Amino acid sequence: MKMIGVIGGMSWESSTEYYKLLNRHAKARLGGHHNARSLMLTVDFAPIEANQRAGDWNALGQQMADAARQLERGGADLVMLATNTMHRVYESIEQAITVPFLHIADPTGEALRAAGVERVGLLGTRYTMEQTFYTGRLREHYGLETLVPDEAGRADVHRIIYDELCHGNVQDASRAVYQGVIQTLAERGAQAVILGCTEITLLIKPEDCALPVFDTTALHAQAAVEWAIDTHQPRG
């Protein structure tokens, strides 16, 4: 099994989910006492979040590239970034390393197309919902039309991620807010919903949702394990 390198810590709450999922998928595939061979480099989220708010994506790209290089030097055969938002700078990571980089949108796009979905709702941080680095990739690579919440909905979804979920604070009232946002997306024609922030999986489970759920965290982790076992090249 190849070594999976994970850039984590954004937030560490979601990185713990990645670690569990990587090992569960490896055990499911290989059985017995097997688990995933992995390295995780955990960054300090405080300066990352500050640079996000400041819009300093160049600095963020340098930070992510440095982390990826450290993982490659440590023996990683594949690098993955355990956050949706920071894929805003994925090109900086790809350019910094010689091993493959597994983009988080690709396993989700492939799963959506396999399910016959053409129009999908997206929940995530403001950066993911409002910028084009994520929705554009889904459109260009997978022909998907992506719907995002209205301004008020985006504000609620973003606030709950940063003020609650990043701190491990899971509130029933916030779940109800997300369910309302998802219902509105369904009324606008969404056939499914992407949980496009790795912390959202702490709050919304498939049984909580009126639409089929495509959880980027779970799909990303599974794709990494499949690659590590089968040594297929991920899409760049």
Results as ranks from 00 to 15, higher is better:
179 Q>I: 02
135 T>G: 04
159 R>N: 14
27 K>W: 02
194 I>P: 05
70 Q>D: 12
111 A>G: 05
87 H>E: 13
226 E>D: 11
223 A>V: 07
113 R>I: 03
57 W>R: 05
12 W>M: 09
61 G>R: 04
95 Q>V: 15
228 A>M: 12
103 H>Q: 02
64 M>K: 09
88 R>S: 15
103 H>I: 01
146 T>M: 02
40 M>G: 06
79 V>G: 09
136 G>M: 00
46 A>E: 03
235 R>F: 15
207 E>A: 14
6 V>D: 09
159 R>M: 07
68 A>W: 09
6 V>S: 08
227 W>I: 07
45 F>Q: 01
222 Q>G: 04
225 V>W: 09
31 G>W: 03
134 Y>H: 00
16 T>I: 06
217 T>I: 10
122 L>K: 13
224 A>N: 06
89 V>S: 01
173 A>F: 02
128 T>H: 13
8 G>I: 00
123 L>G: 05
186 A>F: 05
117 V>N: 12
50 A>G: 11
65 A>W: 13
196 G>V: 10
160 I>D: 11
203 L>K: 07
196 G>I: 11
27 K>E: 01
72 E>M: 13
176 A>F: 15
214 F>M: 11
34 H>S: 03
141 H>I: 03
38 S>P: 00
14 S>Y: 13
120 V>E: 02
214 F>I: 11
227 W>N: 04
212 P>L: 09
126 R>Y: 02
162 Y>L: 06
116 G>P: 06
92 S>P: 08
236 G>V: 12
117 V>S: 10
167 H>L: 15
35 N>K: 01
79 V>T: 12
109 G>A: 05
99 V>I: 15
175 R>Q: 15
218 A>I: 07
77 D>C: 05
220 H>T: 05
91 E>D: 15
140 E>T: 15
136 G>Y: 01
178 Y>A: 14
11 S>P: 09
154 R>C: 13
170 V>D: 10
33 H>D: 02
87 H>K: 13
83 T>A: 10
135 T>Y: 10
41 L>P: 10
62 Q>I: 08
167 H>M: 09
175 R>K: 13
159 R>D: 15
217 T>H: 06
43 V>W: 03
9 G>Q: 05
24 R>W: 10
61 G>C: 00
48 I>N: 04
235 R>I: 07
55 G>V: 10
74 G>F: 07
27 K>A: 00
43 V>K: 11
171 Q>M: 14
8 G>D: 00
102 L>Y: 01
34 H>W: 03
170 V>L: 09
2 K>N: 06
180 G>I: 07
75 G>K: 06
71 L>F: 00
191 Q>D: 14
174 S>P: 11
155 A>D: 08
94 E>D: 03
84 N>D: 10
74 G>S: 03
112 L>I: 02
9 G>H: 08
88 R>Y: 12
151 E>G: 04
192 A>K: 10
148 V>G: 08
234 P>T: 01
151 E>D: 03
139 R>H: 10
2 K>G: 15
217 T>Y: 11
126 R>T: 05
204 I>F: 03
50 A>Q: 14
